[in-house]
């Protein structure tokens, strides 16, 4: 595949936690604008893989490329600046700041202290803020403190903070965890809205949701690559069926 067309390229990635091989010789190519879903049983290494991509965990083997720039084991804030946005399994937002302030922080163009000593005014793109807030169902919450948001709204705010930065690649770890059916539905709408504009990799257990959003699925098993393909291929894949037998299959 041409380098031009791929946003993320992982080559033989591995990490060893003092003897325990959490991810082993894992490779994957994600095309520009693709919505990729990562599947795998508990402990398969999905979160660890995302941690390595965004610089939270140092890999011990292999390389990661964003476009044609290598990002392997760079400091997290630099990887973020280069164009990777990460949403965590446990939603994290700036609790004592308002929704608008959360988004303002996320939208900052400059990253260093000295470049940011100027005032907030003028630098804020209100149109873009409004657009992102309505995309994530937060249009009426602009002045609400993040700590007062509901269970479902908190991950939306985190998602909004990623979207507003327009990163090249967005990593979402279980975006619907703990959501009600209604919130899950709204989340899948947000995701489908983003389709094509961003390259997205999502870890997700809810198969109904996966069917709703996924272009292509990659399955991990015990830290290794197991299978890749469209949803029907994966559901009929014998290796996947075998791997999931112990944990009751994919639902």
């Amino acid at each position: 595949m041409k380098a031009k067309n791929r946003d993320l390229y992982i080559d033989g990635l591995g990490v060893n936690f003092s003897g325990f091989q959490a991810v082993n010789n894992f490779s994957m190519v994600v095309k520009h604008g693709e919505m990729r879903v990562l599947l795998g049983a508990n402990g398969a290494g999905k979160t660890t893989l995302m941690d390595m991509i965004c610089g939270k965990t140092q890999s011990t083997a292999g390389r990661i490329f964003l476009g044609d720039k290598e990002i392997t084991n760079k400091p997290p804030h630099l990887i973020a600046r280069m164009g990777i946005g990460r949403k965590f399994q446990i939603p994290s937002v700036f609790k004592e700041l308002s929704v608008l302030q959360n988004l303002s922080v996320a939208a900052m163009q400059e990253s260093t202290v000295l470049a940011n000593l100027g005032s907030m005014k003028r630098r804020v793109d209100h149109e873009r803020m409004k657009e992102v807030m309505s995309m994530t169902n937060l249009e009426n919450k602009a002045h609400e403190l993040a700590e007062n948001l509901s269970h479902g709204e908190t991950p939306w705010l985190e998602l909004a903070m990623l979207i507003i930065r327009k990163p090249q690649v967005i990593l979402l770890d279980e975006p619907t965890a703990g959501m009600t059916a209604d919130e899950t539905l709204k989340t899948s709408r947000i995701m489908n809205n983003l389709k094509g504009q961003h390259t997205i990799i999502a870890v997700e257990h809810d198969m109904a949701f996966v069917r709703e959003i996924a272009d292509k699925i990659t399955v991990m098993h015990q830290g290794e690559f197991l299978a890749e393909g469209h949803i029907s291929d994966i559901e009929n894949n014998q290796a996947v069926k075998d791997a999931y037998l112990g944990s009751g299959g994919i639902h």
Partner: peptide, 21 residues
């Protein structure tokens, strides 16, 4: 200032701020 707001964000969640760059 913008830096002051970022500082408060870091106070609230250092990791979130780090992964925003």
């Amino acid at each position: 200032s913008r830096a002051g707001l970022i500082l408060q964000a870091i106070r609230d969640d250092q990791n979130r701020a780090k992964y925003l760059g």
